[in-house]
Simulated scan of single mutants.
Amino acid sequence: MIALRKGRIEFFRHLYRRHYAAVQAYASQCVRGPLHAQEVTSDVFAHLLQQLVSGESLIERRHPGCLRPQLLGKVRTAAINRWHRERDTLAPDFQAWVAAGSRWPWGEDGQLALAYERLPATTQCLLWHSVVERDDPAFTARITGLDHHAVPAACDQAMTALRQARADLYLERLERADCRDVIERLTRRPEADPAEGWGHLSACPACAAVYKDLSQLDEQLEAQLPVRLLGWWTGQRYL
């Protein structure tokens, strides 16, 4: 039992080293000043240590494939809890977001998070660290357990998997067979000539919007995925 406890504590140290800077950076986007950010960060890691020592699983319903967004979500929750006790400790922009109801920006791609959460755990982790966090291949390899040289190809495959998962969600909603055929042909066959579907797309605004969304997914992912998963995201300021 003692050996098991020591192993869990050592694993906690391993997670602490890899995620501390990011957790504190996100905390600094939610609360005022480094002291309050440090307090929130300490609370999050204290809870993580408690989970590990008690044998509680780290797998949660939200973001089960990647620990980083789980930890950032805990930061957001801890900061929101401060709203009820010490409102002045919140960063102004975050305080305004909480006061407005902590609303997720539904104007963005509402099903992007669902497509992401359909992917295998390693694929989710690759996308988060390579696309959102912009981590270099060496660090992404350490996080995911992949060989350093395999990371670039694995990231390309992860993007393809997300694009297919996003297309699947559209295909599930499309009722007309001709709509499903066009979207499937244009999104699942990279070699397909988009001109094959221009006639249908020009006559069908719904399919045109779907194709535009899927064709721009790579560019939108960095900005939209963390917003869809966390609700509160400051982008470059966090990075």
Results as ranks from 00 to 15, higher is better:
Leu186Ala: 01
Trp83Met: 05
Asp156Ala: 14
His36Gln: 15
Trp104Glu: 10
Leu52Phe: 08
Ile80Phe: 09
Pro34Ala: 15
Glu60Met: 08
Lys212Glu: 12
Arg103Asn: 09
Asn81Leu: 13
Pro226Trp: 07
Ala46Ile: 11
Gln38Cys: 11
Ala37Asn: 09
Ala3Gly: 11
Ala91Tyr: 08
Asp181Pro: 04
Arg17Leu: 09
Ala113Asp: 11
Gln216Phe: 14
Thr123Arg: 06
Gln29Thr: 10
Leu169Cys: 03
Asp43Gly: 11
Gly199Pro: 07
Arg103Ser: 08
Gln51Ile: 12
His149Phe: 15
Leu126Ser: 07
Val40Asn: 03
His47Val: 13
Leu48Gly: 06
His14Met: 11
Gln29Lys: 05
His19Val: 05
Pro120Glu: 01
Cys155Ser: 11
Cys207Gly: 01
Pro205Ala: 04
Met159Ala: 12
Thr234Cys: 13
Arg173Tyr: 02
Thr187Ala: 03
Ala167Asn: 02
Thr122Val: 15
Cys30Pro: 07
Gln29Ile: 07
Asp193Glu: 08
Asp93Ala: 10
Arg118Val: 02
Arg188Cys: 08
Leu4Asp: 14
His84Cys: 11
His47Trp: 14
Arg18Glu: 15
Val182Tyr: 00
Ala91Phe: 03
Ala121Leu: 01
Ile59Gln: 10
Leu239Asn: 12
Gln220Glu: 13
His14Trp: 14
Gly197Asp: 00
Ala22Cys: 12
Ile2Lys: 15
Leu52Gln: 04
Leu112Phe: 02
Thr144Ala: 01
Phe45Gln: 02
Arg118Trp: 08
Asp156Met: 09
Gln220Asp: 13
Leu186Tyr: 02
Asp135Pro: 05
Leu221Arg: 00
His149Trp: 10
Arg82Val: 01
Arg76Ser: 07
Leu49Trp: 07
Tyr170Leu: 15
Arg173Ile: 04
Gln111Phe: 13
Arg5Met: 14
Glu175Asp: 13
Ala100Arg: 14
His200Asp: 04
Asp43Tyr: 04
Ala153Glu: 15
Cys207Thr: 00
Ala203Met: 08
Val98Arg: 02
Leu171Gln: 05
Asp88His: 13
Tyr170Gly: 09
Arg163Gln: 13
Arg185Trp: 01
Trp106Lys: 12
His200Pro: 03
Lys6Phe: 14
His47Leu: 11
Gln164Met: 13
Ala25Met: 06
Leu146Ile: 01
Asp156Thr: 14
Ala223Glu: 15
Gln216Ala: 15
Leu71Phe: 06
Leu112Tyr: 02
Thr144Ser: 05
Gln38Gly: 13
Tyr20Met: 12
Trp97Phe: 12
Ala37Gly: 06
Gly33Phe: 07
Val182Asn: 00
Met1Leu: 12
Ser54His: 07
Leu71Asp: 04
Gln29Phe: 08
Ala192Thr: 09
Pro120Gly: 04
His63Pro: 09
Cys66Met: 04
Phe11Met: 14
Asp193Cys: 00
Leu201Pro: 02
Arg76Asn: 03
Thr140Gly: 03
Arg13Leu: 12
Trp106Cys: 12
Ser57Ala: 10
Leu90Val: 06
Tyr211Lys: 05
Ala113Val: 09
Asp109Phe: 04
Ser215Phe: 12
Gly145Phe: 06
Leu114Cys: 13
Asp135Ile: 08
Lys212Ala: 15
His19Pro: 08
Leu49Gln: 00
Ala79Ser: 07
Trp128Thr: 01
Leu201Arg: 00
Leu71Thr: 05
Cys204Trp: 04
Cys66Trp: 05
Val75Glu: 03
